[in-house]
Each structure stands twice: as C-alpha cells, then as structure tokens.
Measured scan of single mutants.
Amino acid sequence: KLETFPLDVLVNTAAEDLPRGVDPSRKENHLSDEDFKAVFGMTRSAFANLPLWKQQNLKKEKGLF
C-alpha cells in the first residue's frame, strides 16, 4: 500500500514540491480512503470505472492533476 498524505500536501502542488515517492500523475493514489471519498464523492472503485477522460477532468477540477 502506498503512503498517504493529507489533502493540502497534494492539492495544487507542483511535481517538484510533492513528497518523495509521489507520482505527480497519480496524486489521488496517495489520499486516504476517507479523503478520496470526500474529494471525489465516490469510492476508488467507482472512480476507476469512469472513462479516463472523466477521471482526468475530475482530477483537474479538484487540483489533483
């Protein structure tokens, strides 16, 4: 399991300012399950079932792209 970080560490943070080991294209993977659901309004599995373009739009909207 990946290390999780608080939302404010990941949202609207440039790649070079992210904690070590965080993939800038997969910031959402480093949210706790609770934060993930609070941000996206759905579970990880529901998010994973969305088309890629919709996932990317949601990530942009939430500052996690």
Rank of each mutant, 00 (worst) to 15 (best):
V39M: 07
L52S: 09
L50Q: 05
L58Y: 05
K62W: 06
T13F: 08
E34S: 11
W53M: 08
F5D: 02
K59A: 04
S45V: 13
K54M: 14
D35H: 04
V39T: 10
F5R: 03
K27M: 15
A48P: 00
F65N: 12
S45P: 08
L64N: 02
K37F: 15
P51C: 06
A14E: 09
L7R: 05
Q56E: 13
N57W: 12
N49Q: 14
G41E: 11
S25F: 15
V22M: 05
E34Q: 11
D23W: 04
L10T: 02
N49R: 13
L31I: 08
K60H: 08
A46F: 09
N49F: 10
G41Q: 13
Q56M: 14
R44N: 01
N29P: 03
S25K: 13
E61T: 09
L10W: 01
R44V: 02
L10P: 02
Q56T: 13
Q56W: 10
L18T: 05
A46E: 14
D23Y: 04
V22F: 04
K62C: 08
A46N: 09
K59E: 01
E61K: 09
P6A: 07
K54Y: 12
L64A: 02
F40W: 01
L10S: 02
L31A: 01
L10Q: 02
A15I: 15
F40D: 00
W53G: 08
V22N: 03
L50V: 02
D33R: 03
E34V: 10
A48Q: 13
L18R: 02
K59P: 00
N49A: 14
L50S: 01
P6G: 06
S45I: 14
K54W: 11
S32C: 06
R26I: 05
L50P: 00
F36R: 00
L2S: 11
T4S: 08
D33Q: 05
G63S: 04
S32I: 04
L2K: 11
S32F: 02
G41F: 06
A15L: 13
K27D: 03
F36H: 00
M42V: 05
G63P: 01
S45F: 14
A48R: 12
G21Q: 08
A38Q: 13
F5P: 02
L18K: 02
R44A: 04
L31E: 01
H30W: 12
E28C: 04
E34D: 12
R44L: 04
K60V: 12
Q55E: 00
G41K: 09
K54N: 09
